[in-house]
Design a protein around this nucleic acid. Structure first.
Lengths: 371, 371
DNA sequence: CCGTATTTGTTCGTATGTATT
DNA sequence: CAATACATACGAACAAATACG
């Protein structure tokens, strides 16, 4: 009995309202479709007609549906979207950290020049948060979305929302990464496979052969950099050892990789270099190695990725891959403007792949002459 | 009978709704006043409580009134532009540089939690750009503006735009600084006078007495930090020498202060410390001093301001003033939410002054024992 | 055009739950 | 604790617009 009461917190009209809203957003109920009549809903949900009406009145107020006396209730031609709002949404995983401020700045430069404003959202790299953002944005007056997908390694759970965007002719551009099975969508990203390959090859050429890898597992960038890392090893005839690779999730960023590399180091697991997913993690790796009694680069070389401001700290300049930050933002914004002007059926290439370039620092040693 | 039917067009809930609306608009019911309870209305209008609730729900939806569980129904602080866009504009001088990403993140945290979105604009610290931003924003659906004024030292040239905001009941909150003659507006800023005073006093206590100052001349923060600097000198009986102060404009940031301090240094103008407007400029000053053959802190001490990530670079940790970045953003966002909820005539204090605090680094030497 | 069924719109009555004073 | 006030829920009835044979 008390158990049941706790569960029963869900209000009937809220439940019904959200059920219907879900059906509308998911596309089960399309624009112009007739909803079941109040009596039918009342029967099928086992609630009173009053309760049904309460739920419907909320949706009507929010603009999802409209009622016609004597005819029925219908799904709105969602929504009186202002087609000339001059707003473009920018959705990133994080706001203030790392390279994002500069990417956003690049987007802003181009869009402001053309008279657009940015609506900024961030997801904390959570898919549910991303879905919430998109739902919110579908309610707003926007002309397009530039989005860095959250957990892009995993299959996108809310394709329906992207479909909704397409239905409404709201163009979107992926940056940094792209969900599986959405490779045909407009996107601006780096060739991460090649980046991982280049930086690993760089280490091999400097005489390293026990190269540990630390990669982020929940975005497509991490997957691709890892593939490049594997390719470079195999090309050089170094067998790939899965135990040498540390995968981490964003959520554990503060703890996990540090500890893994620390334990690997103090347990004397042989390594002469560490390829890192990005500069941020490289700094943690260096910290862990130092704490374990190793010197970088004298004992172990470490590489970063992105060449962010973090690549240059405490006199240590990480060897890294150049991330064009602002430039990437500008390219994404320009692609967006083209999509708005020429419609979504853009003739030219909609996929921009930025070729990586190595920038050498002092975080790696040449071990060829040491042998 | 037909006669009666025509007259009967007046629906009871519409009648009641319009009655109440009239009373609100005429001022019979003032903002914050409690309406009669649903039961009282039901009695006095001889309608059912359902009907009363229907009437009230319309008024509530339109924003005229709000209901509080267990307390009663109250008259709103009429009326926020009728708009329910859930957008709040954030206008800063810069986007990606320095402390701004973290300030914006703080704002975002609070606003996202409350279901708002940020429209981001930046002015490049140009007044004309700021005016253009405000004009653009007046065309958009926004519920408020959080704005860092550009060139806040100078009298605001586009007061008319701020007046427009007030006419439209769009609340605005200043952050970082505030235009002259607008001190009564809502604002969140640091006590820059005290900050300048504290950090200068710190140097004096460490035995410095030839303290050069480098201040930004085009915002109110620079003016106030300079005043604090003067106050500390005079308190210590050190006469103020205007030739010892370098003023610079934002536009010249990259060139001017570097050259001034460089020339001051190579011309052997005596100095044992430099108080800098912020960490950014402090790094340039240190560069200039190094290039002129001086060592920091051995020959000359240097202080920063804001304790940004720049305060800690190349093994040098600037002595600086703590800027609460995210916290400041959060406070501004919370103040904004209060203004939206309670109307512009907020009872409580609308001006938040954050007290500065020194954070000691290794960029200053104690010269008391050197004499 | 009429009549009937369906569907939304409006109103009344009642009961129970929950927050505030 | 009791009284008050809003919140949710159900049932019933009639009105008005619409669809359809």
């Amino acid at each position: 009995m008390p158990n049941q009461e706790i569960v029963q917190k869900e209000l009937k009209y809220v439940k019904l309202m959200e059920d219907l809203k879900e059906k509308i957003l998911s596309g089960t109920l399309k624009a112009g479709d007739k909803l079941p009549s109040e009596n039918e809903l009342s029967m099928s949900y086992q609630v009173s007609r009053q309760t049904v009406r309460k739920a419907l009145s909320i949706l009507e107020n929010a603009g999802y549906i409209y009622a016609e006396h004597g005819r029925g209730t219908f799904c709105s031609e969602l929504v009186h979207h202002n087609r000339n709002s001059r707003n473009i949404a920018v959705v990133t995983t994080y706001l203030s950290d790392y390279i994002f401020p500069r990417v956003i700045k690049g987007i802003d430069t181009v869009l402001t020049r053309e008279g657009y404003s940015i609506i900024l959202k961030n997801t904390g790299n959570s898919r549910s948060q991303e879905a919430r953002c998109l739902e919110e944005l579908l309610q707003k007056d926007i002309e397009g979305i530039i989005i860095e997908p959250s957990k892009s390694q995993i299959y996108c759970r809310h394709m329906n929302l992207y479909q909704k965007l397409e239905e409404y002719n709201i163009p979107y551009v992926f940056i940094q990464g792209c969900f599986a099975r959405m490779n045909d969508r407009p996107q601006v990203l780096m060739n991460d496979y090649k980046g991982g390959y280049l930086i690993t090859k760089y280490l091999i050429e400097k005489g390293h052969n026990k190269i540990t890898g630390v990669f982020k597992s929940d975005d497509i960038q991490g997957q691709n950099r890892h593939k490049g890392y594997v390719a470079a090893l195999q090309e050089a005839g170094i067998s790939y050892d899965p135990d040498r690779v540390i995968w981490y999730y964003t959520e554990d960023r503060k703890v996990h990789p540090y500890e893994s590399i620390y334990h690997m180091a103090i347990s004397r697991y042989p390594m002469d270099a560490v390829v890192c997913y990005n500069d941020q993690i490289a700094m943690k790796v260096i910290q862990a190695l130092n704490d374990a009694g190793y010197k970088v680069p004298e004992d172990i070389s470490v590489t970063g990725y992105d060449n962010s401001y973090m690549a240059n700290i405490n006199g240590m300049k990480l060897t890294s891959i150049i991330h064009p930050q602002e430039k990437l933002g500008e390219m994404a914004a320009e692609l967006m403007l083209k999509l708005i002007q020429n419609g979504i059926e853009l003739k030219e290439e909609k996929k921009i792949l930025i070729e990586p370039e190595i920038i050498e620092g002092n975080s790696c040693m040449d071990r060829k002459n040491n042998l």
